[in-house]
Design a protein around this nucleic acid. Structure first.
Lengths: 218, 218
DNA sequence: GTCTATATGGGGATAGAC
DNA sequence: GTCTATCCCCATATAGAC
């Protein structure tokens, strides 16, 4: 079949990039696992870097669509005062977590891919990623600004940035947590993890803005 | 000099690992930038992986000592009820941020190294890292448990884990933030960033624990 | 401790037949 | 669209002279 090879390359590359990182995964690993020919990778995608972009684009686009859809639904339901911070955060977080249960691919493969994106990948791929996120970030910034009118704009951006750190860290899988908590925490149930993260971040957004004169040690 | 070569390798490897990642940085890049011979790397360190461990160990040990020292100072000052969550978080966060101003190396080099550690690095190096963090994590877990007696132990671990995500994301440098905030946020002043992160996380720890029956969409 | 030289293997990319 | 064969470069690691 025409597209079968291309799909197999995408699926396998996604899995291996997520498991081992971008630089540490060679095209030869990918073609061996996918059962395709090396030249096919360069035929369907032009280079390893373009392959990574294709892998990312395939997942991020539906997720960002769902984020916007969910946020707009929340805004319709909420009336003029706008949705709560918790509801806005849900609109941002849940689509990612739910994507990990998509039938197209094994659970937990794709989230780690995104976690990896933040740590690794060259400047060009990161730029591409930022470009994909720009519209979504602006949209959520507006919603959060309305829900938190007392916070300076700059502070909203910082807190969004910190929140992305939490998400990326969760997606990265956190083998450390299981060890450091002596087995008390693990990642097997995503549906429990998302509410925890939402609560945590809602609390963080509720923190007052520090006044300029406030000293660190209080 | 005897130790000069070893130091130069360590310094250069630290910088390059931080800038480009572990897998993407070859020993040849390192020796070229350091002006030393390839064989010297294998003489002083046994392998590339051991070199990474050495790089990490050199920085993490004084930081973790300072974290413990600062936490103990806070506990002495606070009396029987123990220090506040914000003060505990400062004890954990500030040593990392302040390490970036150490005269030994260029600012902002080392923090990115730690940011990278979470995203990349093989299982063995991550295991080594967890081992280095175990005692510190246990110590801060105790302090946070005392400050937040209403939270289940498991929840404290989760929130510590989320917090590490924030730190790692900050350390990774966040070129995205500057772009997404249209230039309003940048990372040039670390001394302003740390209080922001402390406030954010203190708010997050102050969030109530979600009861089991609570539904996601409220 | 430091060098040169080399062993040994893997990397991305491409040409050209089918 | 898919294959084989190959170009050319780079990787980590080591042996052995100095």
């Amino acid at each position: 079949m025409a597209t079968d090879t291309k799909q197999r390359i995408l699926d396998t590359a996604e899995r291996l990039f997520a498991e081992r990182g971008y630089a540490a995964t060679s095209l030869r690993h990918i073609i061996a696992a996918a059962g395709v020919n090396l030249a096919a990778v360069h035929y369907h995608f032009r280079s390893k870097q373009e392959l990574l972009k294709a892998v990312v684009a395939r997942r991020i686009e539906p997720i960002n669509r769902e984020r916007i859809r969910s946020l707009e639904a929340a805004e319709r339901e909420a009336g003029p005062e706008g949705p709560s911070v918790a509801r806005i955060l849900e609109a941002f977080l849940l689509p990612v977590f739910e994507a990990s249960r998509h039938p197209d691919f094994e659970p937990s493969v794709f989230p780690r891919l995104f976690g990896m994106l933040y740590g690794e990948s060259g400047d060009e791929v990161r730029e591409f990623f930022v470009q994909e996120m720009q519209a979504v970030a602006a949209r959520f910034f507006s919603a959060l600004s309305r829900a938190l009118p007392h916070l300076p704009e700059e502070e909203i951006y910082w807190r969004m940035f910190f929140s992305v750190g939490v998400i990326a860290h969760i997606l990265r899988g956190g083998q450390e947590l299981k060890l450091l908590s002596q087995g008390r925490c693990d990642f097997s149930r995503w549906e429990e993890l998302a509410p925890r993260a939402v609560d945590f971040l809602a609390g963080a957004f509720a923190a007052p803005a520090r006044t300029e004169s406030h000293k660190v040690h209080g």
